[in-house]
C-alpha cells in the first residue's frame, strides 16, 4: 500500500501538470489541451481523495489535525469546487481552472515544504480528542475553499475587465465575460461566508466545552473575526450600496489574504491556544 506521503508527492506533480496544461490552453487556445487539462485535474482530485483516505487509515482518525493534513483537505475542496463549476457551465469557464488548479498546486507545494514535525503523524493531543474537531474543521475549510475560489475568480475579473476596457483583441478574449466572473465571485463568497461563520460558531461551542469559555480573544479567534468583518463589509457594500466589479474583486482578494494570514500567519507568528494549525 502507498503511504500518504508518497501519494501527496504524486498529487503535487499531477496538479503541476494540470496547471501547465491550463496555461498552454490559455496561450495556444486549443480545445484538446483544455480537455487534457481537465482530465488531469480529475485524476489529481482522485489522487487527492485517495491521499485523504490513506491518511485516515494511517492515523486511525479524521485527517484534519495539523497544518499539513488540512492543506490536503483544502486543495481537495478547492479542486472539487472548480470541477463543480466546470460541470455546471460545461467548458465555458475552463479558464477558471488555470487559477484554481494553480492554487491547489501551490497549496500542496507549501504542504510538502513544511518541516517534518508539521507533517508527522502524531496522536491527537487531549484538546483535539473530540467529535467537534471534524465538524469545526470541515465547515471552516469549506468556507476557506469558497474564499480561495472567489480570490482566483477575482484576479481573473481584474485581468478581464482591463482587457475589455482596452477593447483590443488579447490573450484574455477567451475568458468568460466580466459580468459572469463578477457573479461567480459573489456566489463563492456567498458560499464561503456562511460556512466560515458556522466554523467560528462550532469552534466557540467546542471552546466552551473544552476550555470553559466560548471566546478568549486568542489570536486565531481574533483573526477569524477580522476575516468575518472584512467579508461582512463586502456584503454590505455589494448588497446595500450596490458595489460591483473592480471594488468587490479587490475586496475578495484582500479578504483571502486575511484568510491566508488567519490560516498560516497566525499559526507561525502569533501562536496561542490554537497552536496546532
Amino acid at each position: 500500500m502507498f503511504s500518504s506521503f508518497f501519494l501527496s508527492d504524486i498529487l503535487l506533480w499531477v496538479y503541476l501538470a494540470a496547471a501547465c496544461c491550463y496555461i498552454f490552453y490559455m496561450a495556444l487556445k486549443k480545445e484538446g489541451i483544455g480537455h487534457l487539462a481537465f482530465a488531469l485535474t480529475i485524476i489529481g482530485w482522485i489522487v487527492n481523495t485517495a491521499t485523504l483516505i490513506v491518511r485516515t487509515i494511517e492515523t486511525g482518525r479524521a485527517p484534519y489535525a495539523n497544518l499539513y493534513e488540512t492543506m490536503i483537505l483544502l486543495s481537495w475542496l478547492v479542486v472539487m469546487g472548480y470541477i463543480a463549476i466546470e460541470l455546471k457551465y460545461s467548458n465555458k469557464l475552463r479558464i477558471v481552472g488555470a487559477v484554481i488548479v494553480t492554487l491547489a498546486f501551490l497549496a500542496m507545494g507549501a504542504a510538502a515544504m513544511l518541516p517534518y514535525r508539521y507533517q508527522a503523524i502524531e496522536p491527537l493531543i487531549p484538546a483535539l480528542q473530540s467529535n467537534w474537531l471534524i465538524l469545526h474543521v470541515i465547515t471552516t475549510f469549506v468556507g476557506y475553499a469558497g474564499f480561495a475560489i472567489a480570490f482566483g475568480i477575482g484576479i481573473l475579473y481584474l485581468l478581464k475587465e482591463r482587457a475589455e476596457q482596452r477593447g483590443k483583441p488579447s490573450f484574455f478574449d477567451r475568458f468568460p465575460s466580466s459580468e459572469l466572473l463578477d457573479d461567480l465571485n459573489y456566489k463563492f463568497i456567498a458560499i464561503g461566508f456562511p460556512f466560515v461563520t458556522l466554523g467560528i460558531i462550532l469552534g466557540a461551542i467546542w471552546a466552551n466545552y473544552a476550555w470553559g469559555g466560548y471566546w478568549s480573544w486568542d489570536p486565531k479567534e481574533t483573526w477569524s473575526l477580522i476575516v468575518w468583518f472584512i467579508y461582512a463589509g463586502y456584503f454590505h457594500g455589494r448588497l446595500v450600496r450596490g458595489w460591483r466589479g473592480r471594488k468587490t474583486a479587490y475586496f475578495s482578494i484582500v479578504g483571502f489574504l486575511a484568510v491566508i494570514f488567519l490560516y498560516w500567519g497566525v499559526s507561525f507568528v502569533l501562536p496561542g491556544l490554537h497552536a496546532y494549525a
Partner: peptide, 24 residues
C-alpha cells in the same frame, strides 16, 4: 447608514489586529 456599519467593521478589524500585535 451602511457607511457607518462598514466604517465600524473596519475600525473593529483594525482594533482587533492591534490586540494581536501588542501582547495583551
Amino acid at each position: 447608514s451602511v457607511k457607518l456599519a462598514v466604517v465600524v467593521f473596519f475600525l473593529l478589524a483594525v482594533g482587533s489586529i492591534s490586540g494581536t500585535i501588542i501582547e495583551q
